[in-house]
């Protein structure tokens, strides 16, 4: 049964991939990309990688789709048909693919307990997590505690991406003329969005604070949080969404998340430990770990949510100019 589901899902993934390559309508391609992410997330569920599945669902199927759509809104709706077929790219792709397939021959078998990846540090993490960290979800303990440096690096990368988008698109600097809006026509959507909005934010908080026990954590929570605001912006107009959460505030929040993360690290140093050592944060090491993980997850969540909203607002506030006119006939 397990294998059947695996094979069917992989087959669906492949078919979807080919269809994405063949299709010319960019909106349809975006839709299919979202379906592709759904399938790969399903595959992660089947493989028992719940945290990855949640991330893929929230980021791959959710935010990427929305950002791709915001981009398509700025360009044309159809892919241009290439004027000539070149054989060189095909050759390069075929050779690379063949090399990759050749490389997989040396890989350990699927689920092999003696594979190098299962023998290096993973057993230590799995064995030590109950005593040292005391959280049931080992993924969270690895990401937030054992590999706290790496996660700090990742958050900084996300923050830098937000700064980059701000520098390039300058969300809050430009005075925008309000679009003639048809938002008053969307009665049904607006009511439903109002119904969903608080629940989405509540669910994001649940994912954030429940990350120690189940799938989830700062990254996923931040994305879900941002999705809630995107829904609001879609149904109530960008102007209203920016009144709810001003872009200037978003910039501050994005920095505040990283700051909170590094402040936890420095607090550990001040209390006599090492940078990002949570054991010293409370009286006994395990509750110190709990507190530290909770704080840095919150920091990650704040930064991720703020940066995604910065990028979204940055893209959407650029309305299509003249680049829109050349639809193919």
């Amino acid at each position: 049964m397990q294998h059947l589901v695996d094979i069917v899902l992989l087959g669906l993934l492949m078919i979807t991939g080919f269809a994405i390559v063949r299709m010319r309508s960019l909106l349809a391609v975006t839709m299919l990309t979202s379906i592709y992410s759904l399938f790969s997330a399903l595959l992660f569920v089947v493989l028992d990688a719940v945290d990855v599945a949640l991330t893929e669902a929230a980021i791959g199927a959710g935010i990427s789709t929305i950002l791709l759509l915001a981009t398509v809104a700025l360009t044309t709706e159809y892919e241009k048909v290439p004027s000539h077929r070149s054989l060189l790219p095909l050759l390069v792709v075929t050779l690379t693919g063949a090399a990759l397939i050749y490389g997989t021959l040396d890989m350990p078998h699927y689920g092999d307990p003696n594979a190098p990846v299962h023998r290096h540090v993973a057993p230590d993490y799995i064995e030590d997590t109950p005593e040292e960290i005391g959280v049931p979800n080992v993924v969270t303990s690895v990401l937030a505690s054992y590999r706290g440096y790496d996660t700090l690096g990742e958050v900084t990368v996300i923050f830098t991406a937000g700064v980059g988008v701000l520098a390039l698109l300058g969300v809050h600097l430009r005075k925008r003329t309000e679009q003639p809006s048809d938002y008053h026509k969307l009665v049904v959507l607006r009511v439903i969005a109002k119904l969903f909005f608080p629940l989405i934010l509540l669910f994001a908080l649940y994912v954030l604070f429940h990350g120690d026990y189940g799938p989830g954590g700062g990254f996923q929570a931040g994305v879900i949080f941002a999705t809630g605001f995107v829904l609001y912006a879609l149904t109530h107009g960008l102007g209203n969404a920016e009144r709810v959460i001003p872009p200037a505030l978003l910039g501050i929040l994005a920095a505040a998340g990283v700051l909170l993360y590094s402040a936890v690290g420095i607090e550990g140093m001040l209390l006599g430990g090492k940078f990002l050592e949570y054991n010293v944060l409370a009286d006994d090491p395990v509750s110190g770990q709990h507190l530290g993980i909770l704080l840095i997850e919150t920091g990650v969540g704040i930064t991720v949510a703020a940066v995604i909203l910065i990028i979204y607002f940055g893209f959407v506030s650029r309305r299509p100019g003249g680049a829109d006119a050349q639809d193919p006939s």
Binding site: L38, A57, A58, A61, G62, I66, F196, Q220
Partner: peptide, 8 residues
């Protein structure tokens, strides 16, 4: 998460 994402 899927329910919300696919709707949005």
């Amino acid at each position: 998460v899927y329910v919300l994402i696919s709707f949005i």
